[in-house]
Amino acid sequence: MSTLTKSFIILLTISSLFLCGYVVQYVSSVSNYKDDFEKAQRQANAKQSEIENLNQNLKDERNKRIQLEDSKIKEIAALDAKITELQTEIKDLKRENAGLTATVESWITTTQQLTNLSDKNREMYVTAFSELNKTKDELVGEKTKLDETSNTLIEKEALIDMLEVNVKQLTEEKIALENKLNSILRPYGTKAAAQQPLIPQSDLAQLATATTAKIGLKGFVSSVDMKNSMAQISIGGSHGVKKAMRFHVSRGNEYICDIVISDVAADVSVGMLELIQQQPRPGDNVSTNW
């Protein structure tokens, strides 16, 4: 065996030992790529499934969000409609409130007017009642005076009857005396002259005949001017109407007011309205006596 062969054997052995040792060390220390690949694949699968789950969740969340948005949009639309309806109701209520306020104000004004009218009526009632009492007192006094006057009148009438009897007796006596004197003087061609009364006629008391009669004028209202409280009636001076004459206006059995004549024409008259209880209208009846 040559030396070269020996050297090759030695080198082959040594290199085999080192190379095999290195190979064993490398193979022992190298990682298991299959396991790593499988782990990585499992992780990738897990991640993929997780991604799919997340995508599914995302889709679900999107669907929920879309549904929620739809429901919110519907709620918003409903709320908008409700807001519009409420605004319309608010406008109606404001309008109604304004109407009611105006009604209340008108009622307040009417109440105040009625209160004032009631006060005036109360004052007028008090005044009329006091005047009525005064009139009653005056009427009692006048009645007393009338009774006294009636008694005096009866006495005077009795006295007048007695005096008339005396006058008749005196007249008969005078006639008898004149006849007697004429029969005495007739043979002498003379007759008794008419005797003048000893007391002048103007000095004799004249008995006034206080006769009263109802005037009885009737007509109707031809026009009314409430702004100036005036009215025109259908009768005038040719019917006997005179200035300051008072006419009573009536409608059926209702008393309306009085008209005091201020201007008189031939066929019509114009006067002021007084004691107005109701508004007179053309066609209402007027008369001087109620």
Binding site: M1, L17, V24
Partner: peptide
Amino acid sequence: ANNVYTAMLALAFGVVLATAIFVAFKCYSQ
């Protein structure tokens, strides 16, 4: 010719064979 070198060759052959078996086992197992 010399038993020492034969032994060395046998050792080298055995080491290579053991390494091949080891590598094959590893490959098959992994």
